[in-house]
Design a protein around this nucleic acid. Structure first.
Lengths: 354, 354
DNA sequence: CTGAAAGCGCTAACAC
DNA sequence: GTGTTAGCGCTTTCAG
């Protein structure tokens, strides 16, 4: 017996039990289960009673065996620690529930080999398709892994023509953030992040550039390059900015991500620069890890739950359509979240258990 | 065809295909798959070649159908947003992988009804057992749900005698935190959190009390009650403390949780009280959401990954032992993490994707 | 050591 | 409308 094994439960009732109890055949039981319309009301009720009484639950393995169908999709997540992906998972789960699909979560932990392991695991046996938020630079893995009958929808990456994918409009998000600052009278904008970090960051910057350009010279734009978009990157930039003479500082900064923005705020405050009085700062992510910042941050919500829902949608239609399927890309609109107005969490009251 | 459906893949090779290709019977193929020792080396190699060639993968549904075994356990998590639980999940996953068990993650989102839904979902069909980090006050649900052949291991709660469970030693954690402060010369300790919040908090307080008692009058202890252990609770306390005359302030505070401690630090600093110069503060959790605090926090690591591993261990033995099983409780020792020395994450480089 | 054959529990034709 | 029946792909006796 494998260490992981378990008897499916000695005497669990089967269709046959239900059938004899209801004095019908197994076929009829199967029909009330799957196509109740075909069964006369009277017998149906009898069967339903015979189902409820002993708490009959159809054996999914048997059903899968005969139908070749699974009601489960997998979601291989680049990094579950990032609240954006958790939001996506939640959205996928909620939508999936509504249409009778389970969601199997797997955490790649930002590691290509872990991701590959899960792809194989899920792909070969468990699921009828998968969502993947791929670890950076692993698109080829996905391509290679895919096969007829193993659909993959890519999340948060533009995967070119040969995958369905759902992304968020980072250009628009950057634009929204910059507009927010411009509308509040800021005229010396900066973008903190540097363009080489990741495509999404580059897109956010493009949006900022557009907003500034539309301001028709009313505002300038400076780029503050950083190595990454973590807290320390922000702190480093903040120190550098504080060291400048006040006139040489920007008065509004679009941070490429919340953590970076958070670091910026921390450093500026420590150095005695007022936020947002002297410099207003926006983030990007609505990252839970930044919710606890002392100075609440204006940020851009990437609508993770919506992303998740659409990803499942795409996956299910790809599965349904089969070979004739044509890949679609859906792009989700982000939304600006003014400081302190985080969207409500789907969860109940927080708990001090951790 | 159900929306979630998928043909299992038209012409995937079966044991029969492999058997004919290797010129043996299906029984032999099955043997090389499951009990290779029984098969003559020569035939085994022939069969193995016939398996590899067309990329044969055994159909799990069929196997489950005949054996009644599943290689999957579920983990119903109170709140995946809390990095402690994510650590537990990671530990469970890693250990499970090593012994050939998959981990199905489900997020209760702190909601009793969601949790109940997943219990039913997983319990009835998918898994051979489950880990549950229960939403507060739902132990009865668990009890009621359980049945022969549906093992449940409770995580992070003391579930009394009728469950296996794994918890962390909160009393010891509180003790460690208090000792840390005492050893650094603090003599007017306080515990921020209040005892009524949750059993775990109460236990942490007990540990603090013990440490202070052991100091034999060298230190006093004050309790700073709060409604919860979130950032705002900490801020509120911080403001209150800063308002006192300096001599009336504690010089060391054990926070009941990292977020609370973080709020404390923020408020004290804002009010001009030096941390840790005037007041040293410890947290509890090693919560990722507090890693970005401007002042790094000494905290207590609850060893989530270890918890996860042991939980899976317990579950698998409960499954194996069957009816004769006697419930066990395992308690994990926490570890003090001096400020800024967070344990290394299992993950690779962070990504700016979110 | 290997082959033959009997199901696991369910669904889907196809009869009636 | 309902009953009968033939498998889905695999494992596992039981003979040989």
């Amino acid at each position: 017996m494998r260490a992981t094994a378990q008897r499916s439960g000695g005497g669990r009732p089967t269709v046959l039990d239900v059938a004899t109890m209801a004095r019908v055949s197994t076929g009829t039981v199967s029909n009330v289960l799957n196509r109740p319309a075909l069964v006369a009301l009277q017998t149906r009720e009898r069967v339903e009673r015979a189902i409820l009484a002993p708490g009959f639950v159809p054996n999914r393995a048997a059903r899968t065996l005969v139908t070749g169908l699974t009601a489960t999709v997998g979601f291989v997540v680049e990094d579950l620690e990032n609240s954006f992906f958790l939001d996506i998972a939640r959205g996928a789960q909620t939508y999936g529930e509504a249409v009778g699909t389970r969601l199997l979560l797997a955490n790649s932990d930002n590691t290509a080999v872990t991701q590959r392991g899960y792809l194989r695991l899920l792909g070969t046996e468990h699921v009828s398709g998968m969502l993947v938020a791929p670890v950076r630079g692993t698109l080829d893995d996905l391509r290679q892994f895919r096969a007829p009958g193993r659909c993959v929808v890519v999340v948060n990456h533009d995967a070119g023509g040969d995958f369905c994918n759902v992304t968020t409009d980072n250009e628009r998000g950057g634009y929204l953030a910059a507009r927010h600052l411009l509308e509040r009278g800021r005229r010396r904008l900066a973008f903190a992040g540097g363009e080489g970090i990741a495509p999404v960051v580059h897109d956010r910057l493009r949006g900022v550039v557009r907003a500034v350009r539309e301001a028709n010279g009313a505002s300038t734009l400076e780029i503050l390059p950083s190595a990454d978009v973590e807290v320390e990157d922000g702190r480093r930039l903040g120190v550098a900015i504080a060291a400048r003479p006040p006139e040489a500082r920007p008065d509004g900064i679009v941070g490429a991500a919340d953590l970076l923005a958070m670091g910026l705020v921390q450093a500026l405050e420590t150095e005695g620069v007022g936020v947002p009085a002297e410099i207003a700062i926006t983030g990007y992510d609505d990252n839970r890890a930044a919710w606890n910042s002392r100075v609440p941050l204006t940020t851009v919500d990437q609508m993770g739950e919506v992303v998740g829902e659409h990803a499942v949608r795409l996956l299910l239609s790809e599965i349904d359509e089969g070979v004739g399927h044509i890949h679609r890309h859906v792009v989700i609109e982000p939304a600006l979240i003014p400081a302190g107005q985080h969207r409500a969490l789907a969860s109940g009251a927080p708990r001090p258990s951790g």
